[in-house]
Amino acid sequence: MTDTQLVIIGSGPAGYTAAVYAARANLSPVVIAGSVTAGGELMNTTDVENYPGFPAGVQGPELMESMREQAEKFGAEVIYDDVATLKLEPGAHQIETALGARYTAQAVILATGSAYRELNLPNEKKLSGHGVSWCATCDGFFFRNQHIAVVGGGDSALEEATFLTRFASKVTLIHRRQELRASQAMQDRAAADEKLEYLLDSEVTEIHGEDSLTGLTVRNTVSGETAELPVTGLFVAIGSDPRTSLFADQLSLRSDGYLNVEGRTSKTAVEGVFAAGDVIDSVYRQAITAAGSGCSAALDAEHYLADLDAVTKQAEAVAAEASQAPAPIAS
């Protein structure tokens, strides 16, 4: 059992930024980074062009390595393990990892991020890894000169689609509405891409294939007509859901499933437990907003721990005084 002041769960921009601030405040934070997910979602991206300070862009994994290095430089301890159980008990929150390490923490910052959403169609799981993929940067290479479909209309969907045109003979972007949600910059880039086609007002209703993906059935959401799309690759980028299973039964969640925090602070419903990043943010969901909220959480945790320390010292002083004072006279 290791007693700590602060444990940070998660290692995306929110977790590592919280670690930088907390480490500089001498809180010796322990970051439980995840054994295979360390660095978070940016580890699966290539060029990040909108993180301030990098006019030439930066590779997602490189940015995350730099954040980790910066946190460690100031004394954060990064552990490549996963939290198995979390028991929130004000004063001494209990954390146990998958490999059996145990920690108590006076304060905890939850920066668990989000997980890719699935289409929830039959065959999606079966063909996962056999044509159905969630990581264009990992798997795009295997679809050289093939026809690929990307589902989604946000920045990640367009980024994946334009990335995949490097390999594919053709990429079809399927989005259930007429309007894309992606930023104008991303849409402009996509519009210039000759290998990219759009199937708007459309949704995938069936995924076909026995051993590997052979095609999709796509339904027009306006006319109701269906059509077959003979693709061998399907990349799903329809957003993500907050990762809350570790603490969903101990903290208050909003109706949309995101973790609830008090106003503009990072405070959760339990004393000494703070949250940052995508797990609390259903609106902005950017690396820079996650980093900013990681900073807020570290500052909130720092104030909480300072107050806790002051209260403890005061109690000790009162106790010391009481032990020196003459015994009260019984009345």
């Binding site: 995840g34 054994s35 295979v36 997910t37 393990d81 996963d82 998958a98 490999l99 996962s128 890894g129 056999h130 044509g131 993929s133 990581c135 990992c138 798997d139 295997f142 679809f143 051993d211 590997s212 690759g233």
Partner: peptide, 28 residues
């Protein structure tokens, strides 16, 4: 038929006996 990596395949007597797609923590 590898189209997603990491892919961990176990071969026994020349045949695929198990396939695991995607990164997993050690205990898993």
């Amino acid at each position: 038929g590898i189209t997603s990596i990491p892919a961990l395949y176990v071969f026994k007597d020349g045949e695929v006996a198990k396939s695991i797609i995607g990164a997993r923590p050690k205990p898993a």
